[in-house]
Amino acid sequence: MSPKIAIVGAGPAGLTLASILVRNGITPTVFEHDASSTARIQGGSLDLHPGTGQAALDACGLTAEFKKYARYEDQDASLCDKYGKRYLESKGQDAGRPEIDRGQIRQMLLDSLPDGVIRWGHHLVAATEDSLQFKDHTETGFDLIVGADGAWSKIRPLCCTVTPYYAGITCAVMDLQDTSVKYPAISEMLGNGTIYALGCDDGLAMSFQRNDNDVIKVVASGRWQEGWLKKIGLNESDHAGILARLKKEYKDWAPEFIRVFDEYKGDVSVLPLYMLPVGLRWPSRQKVTIIGDAAHLMTPFAGEGVNLAMADGMNLANAIIAHPDNIAAAIAETETRMWKMAKVASNLAWENGLLRYEPGGLEKWVAFLKEKFEKQGDLQLLELLDKKQ
């Protein structure tokens, strides 16, 4: 008899877990707070890695579908200082990590599930190892409850007592639509892929990232205090005021970067970054576990968050399939593996985050990448780096 499994959260981790289980004859129930799949924008583009995100999609039977949407041309990347000087440039290189929009990944996973698996509009209020208490009813009788409910997980307290803390960086995010028509200069500057620009001595950074459908996501970020927006007398709905403040903060930056603060007229999302401690673990439970951001929330500076979340879902699904009558063993096996992977990734994210916003960080990053590319034999990048020395 198949175990009765509840998955809280229809993000990458929870949907990967559900999809693989369904393919192997185990039908879980996914409880999602959102009213529908279109209730929220799912974020920007990301690169899926072969051993984690891509492997998880393959286990879901979605490799062919993934290749329909994967943008191999958007693996281009440039690293600049705040004056626009390029220290590193990679163009036309296939690193095996194509870009794809988050919304496309989610929709592929949703489409792989039969009707009835996801129960939308379920706002979890509280949970125990034996029950899920929603606003208007309670669900019980599960052999396993999986918290795939993100940074502020309501399932996490059943596993550990640690809560996320502010990572010291706040991001202001702008989504530029129809960029080839509305923002041609920015679109031409970017080309394909992503530009990273570091201020280093001012604690600021910017990134310009090509998304699908002629969209460019611009992120201005800095070492601002938690609650920065409120402390400078602005609220989240004052988008014009936020843009004016950003223009002031970045006044010493190159015109090609800061023109976005004048040209952009849309919404600005101000997002403080939070994280869980590097190396977090807890005593395994018999019937409850957490995966993805619920288990190892980290900053985005390693590019591993979604990849690890999907790998967590894949590894837990495989463990359940191998031990359907011993859920506790499946949990312990998955968590041990997850902790090791997350410790490496979250430490890398933390160190990379420090590097981006500290004096001398750009030079250290270039030196690190030069050593890496020497080992990989990437002559195009080495030639450019040598010219910058």
Rank of each mutant, 00 (worst) to 15 (best):
I5M: 03
S180C: 10
D136E: 10
A329W: 03
G53R: 07
G147E: 01
G360D: 14
M189N: 10
K135T: 11
L234F: 06
A35K: 15
A295L: 03
V366D: 08
F66T: 04
L271V: 11
V344S: 15
V30M: 08
C171D: 12
R97F: 14
I327H: 06
L362M: 05
I7T: 01
Q376G: 14
W282G: 06
A319R: 07
G227N: 03
K340S: 12
A309P: 05
A330H: 01
W365Y: 11
A55I: 03
D76V: 01
I216C: 12
A345N: 04
L381D: 12
A295T: 01
H49V: 00
I41A: 15
Q389S: 10
G303W: 00
G53F: 01
L79P: 00
L190S: 04
G147S: 05
W350L: 10
G44R: 03
L124T: 07
G141Y: 02
Q177N: 12
A77T: 09
A70P: 07
H296S: 02
K251T: 11
N315L: 09
L204P: 01
T161E: 12
D214M: 09
M275C: 14
M314N: 04
I5A: 02
K135N: 09
G53D: 05
G360R: 05
S269C: 13
D58V: 12
I291W: 07
D130P: 00
G103E: 06
F66H: 07
L243M: 11
V173T: 12
G305A: 09
I7E: 00
D34E: 14
S187L: 02
I41V: 15
C159Y: 04
I320P: 00
K217E: 10
N24L: 04
S180A: 14
D94C: 00
P98A: 08
R245I: 08
L384H: 15
V30N: 12
L57G: 03
G44K: 05
K85R: 12
S346K: 05
D293A: 04
Q42E: 13
I321E: 01
K82T: 11
K343H: 15
D130Q: 05
A302Y: 02
V125M: 10
A6F: 02
D58A: 14
A59L: 05
K67C: 15
L316C: 04
G222V: 09
W152M: 11
E129Q: 14
D111A: 09
A95S: 15
A367C: 13
